[in-house]
Simulated scan of single mutants.
Amino acid sequence: MRKNREYKSDVFSMLMESKENALEVYNALNDSEYTNPEEVEIVQLERGVSLSIRNDASFIIDMNINFYEHQSTYNPNMPLRS
Protein backbone atom coordinates (compact mmCIF):
# COMPACT_ATOMS: atom_id res chain seq x y z
CA MET A 1 0.00 0.00 0.00
CA ARG A 2 1.45 3.33 -1.07
CA LYS A 3 1.21 6.20 1.42
CA ASN A 4 0.26 9.71 0.41
CA ARG A 5 3.04 12.03 1.62
CA GLU A 6 1.57 15.06 -0.12
CA TYR A 7 -1.14 15.80 2.45
CA LYS A 8 1.33 17.36 4.92
CA SER A 9 2.81 19.52 2.18
CA ASP A 10 -0.66 20.53 1.01
CA VAL A 11 -1.67 21.61 4.54
CA PHE A 12 1.56 23.60 4.89
CA SER A 13 0.94 25.27 1.52
CA MET A 14 -2.63 26.17 2.49
CA LEU A 15 -1.50 27.67 5.80
CA MET A 16 1.20 29.74 4.08
CA GLU A 17 -1.33 31.26 1.67
CA SER A 18 -2.42 33.44 4.58
CA LYS A 19 -0.47 36.69 4.83
CA GLU A 20 -0.76 36.57 8.62
CA ASN A 21 0.77 33.08 8.81
CA ALA A 22 3.51 33.97 6.33
CA LEU A 23 4.40 37.05 8.36
CA GLU A 24 4.49 35.03 11.59
CA VAL A 25 6.85 32.45 10.04
CA TYR A 26 9.06 35.19 8.58
CA ASN A 27 9.32 37.00 11.92
CA ALA A 28 10.12 33.77 13.77
CA LEU A 29 12.85 32.71 11.35
CA ASN A 30 14.42 36.15 10.87
CA ASP A 31 14.13 37.59 14.38
CA SER A 32 12.15 40.51 12.98
CA GLU A 33 9.07 42.34 14.20
CA TYR A 34 6.94 43.13 11.15
CA THR A 35 3.32 43.68 12.19
CA ASN A 36 1.43 44.61 9.00
CA PRO A 37 0.33 41.55 6.99
CA GLU A 38 -0.40 43.83 4.02
CA GLU A 39 3.39 44.19 3.55
CA VAL A 40 3.43 40.52 2.47
CA GLU A 41 2.89 39.63 -1.18
CA ILE A 42 2.13 35.93 -1.66
CA VAL A 43 3.88 34.46 -4.73
CA GLN A 44 3.13 31.10 -6.31
CA LEU A 45 5.54 29.54 -8.76
CA GLU A 46 3.94 27.02 -11.06
CA ARG A 47 5.32 25.40 -14.17
CA GLY A 48 8.76 26.93 -13.97
CA VAL A 49 11.80 25.12 -15.32
CA SER A 50 10.11 21.76 -14.96
CA LEU A 51 6.40 21.22 -15.50
CA SER A 52 6.26 19.16 -12.30
CA ILE A 53 7.99 21.65 -9.97
CA ARG A 54 5.82 23.76 -7.71
CA ASN A 55 6.99 25.52 -4.59
CA ASP A 56 5.27 24.94 -1.24
CA ALA A 57 5.28 28.54 -0.10
CA SER A 58 6.86 31.80 -1.17
CA PHE A 59 6.24 35.45 -0.54
CA ILE A 60 7.85 38.84 -0.84
CA ILE A 61 8.40 41.14 2.12
CA ASP A 62 10.67 44.17 2.30
CA MET A 63 11.77 43.57 -1.32
CA ASN A 64 13.08 40.08 -0.44
CA ILE A 65 11.59 36.87 -1.79
CA ASN A 66 11.34 33.97 0.64
CA PHE A 67 10.89 30.31 -0.34
CA TYR A 68 9.78 27.63 2.10
CA GLU A 69 9.45 23.93 1.45
CA HIS A 70 7.79 21.35 3.67
CA GLN A 71 9.76 18.15 4.32
CA SER A 72 7.79 15.17 5.64
CA THR A 73 10.88 13.02 6.12
CA TYR A 74 14.44 13.60 7.32
CA ASN A 75 16.59 15.12 4.59
CA PRO A 76 20.29 15.69 5.39
CA ASN A 77 20.74 17.80 2.20
CA MET A 78 18.28 20.50 3.29
CA PRO A 79 20.93 22.86 4.77
CA LEU A 80 22.78 22.71 1.45
CA ARG A 81 19.65 23.58 -0.47
CA SER A 82 19.08 26.78 1.46
Rank of each mutant, 00 (worst) to 15 (best):
R2K: 11
R2F: 12
R5V: 06
E6C: 10
F12Q: 07
S13F: 13
S13M: 04
S13C: 14
S13L: 06
M14K: 15
M14N: 13
M14D: 14
M16E: 11
E17A: 09
K19M: 03
K19P: 03
E20R: 05
N21Y: 14
N21G: 02
A22T: 10
L23G: 02
V25Q: 12
V25S: 01
V25W: 12
V25C: 13
A28Q: 00
D31L: 00
S32Q: 08
S32T: 15
E33K: 15
Y34V: 09
T35P: 01
N36Q: 12
P37H: 00
V40E: 12
V43H: 12
L45V: 13
E46K: 15
R47S: 12
G48I: 04
V49G: 08
V49D: 09
S50A: 03
S50G: 08
I53K: 15
R54K: 09
N55R: 15
N55Y: 15
F59K: 07
F59P: 00
I60R: 15
I61G: 01
I61S: 05
I61H: 07
D62H: 01
N66S: 06
N66E: 01
N66V: 10
N66D: 10
F67Y: 06
Y68C: 02
Y68W: 14
Y74F: 11
N75Y: 05
M78I: 14
R81I: 09
